[in-house]
């Protein structure tokens, strides 16, 4: 099955009423077995292999085994996501090929939870009928570009 749960690692999110994997799956696939208190993917053939559950699991209990109907066995792609970056490890089917590791940033300059939505630029007018959106026209420009727009452009 695409995303799968390692029984020994899953602690059912410590019996909280909302498990992390169930909370996040965009296709509503992860559920908790109330008897064993372990999570499982209830409909693997609807799984997008999006890794949202993998990235959020607090005990790293979820991994992905590529779709068996077209992906040969033996490879793995694992993710470790922190609040600033993500680390990927790729193992090939052939052990002759060196595993690859990549680390990519996931945010820049703004701490998690702190994205301030408004007021990055002044808003030109308060008229609900004008085409000026919040932070426009100034937000249409950058410091670098030579074209300075002082209103929302038309053709």
């Amino acid at each position: 099955m695409p995303s799968y749960v390692i029984g020994d690692k899953c602690d059912g999110c410590k019996a909280l009423d909302k498990t992390a994997c169930q909370h996040i799956c965009p296709n509503d696939l992860m559920v908790l077995n109330k008897e064993t208190m372990k999570a499982f993917n209830q409909d693997p053939h609807m799984c997008w292999e999006c890794y949202s559950c993998v990235k959020i699991c607090p005990t790293q209990a979820i991994e992905v085994r590529g779709y068996a109907d077209f992906i040969p066995l033996g490879a793995s792609v694992t993710a470790m996501r922190s609040s600033e970056d993500i680390m990927w490890t790729l193992q090939f089917r052939s052990k002759e090929i060196k595993p690859k590791r990549f680390k990519f940033p996931i945010r820049r300059g703004v701490a998690e939870g702190k994205a301030q939505p408004f007021d990055h630029y002044p808003t030109g007018d308060d008229d609900l009928k004008s085409p000026t959106l919040m932070c426009e026209p100034e937000g249409l420009n950058t410091e670098r570009g030579p074209v300075k727009m002082d209103q929302v452009p038309t053709l």
Binding site: E49, C50, Y51, V64, G66, Y67, F70, I71, P72, L73, G74, A75, S76, V77, A79, W88, L90, Q91, F92, R93, S94, I97
Partner: peptide, 12 residues
């Protein structure tokens, strides 16, 4: 498309 990375890794 993480699946594509798995597929490439699985087919070397």
């Amino acid at each position: 498309t993480i699946s594509q990375a798995i597929l490439w890794a699985a087919t070397n």
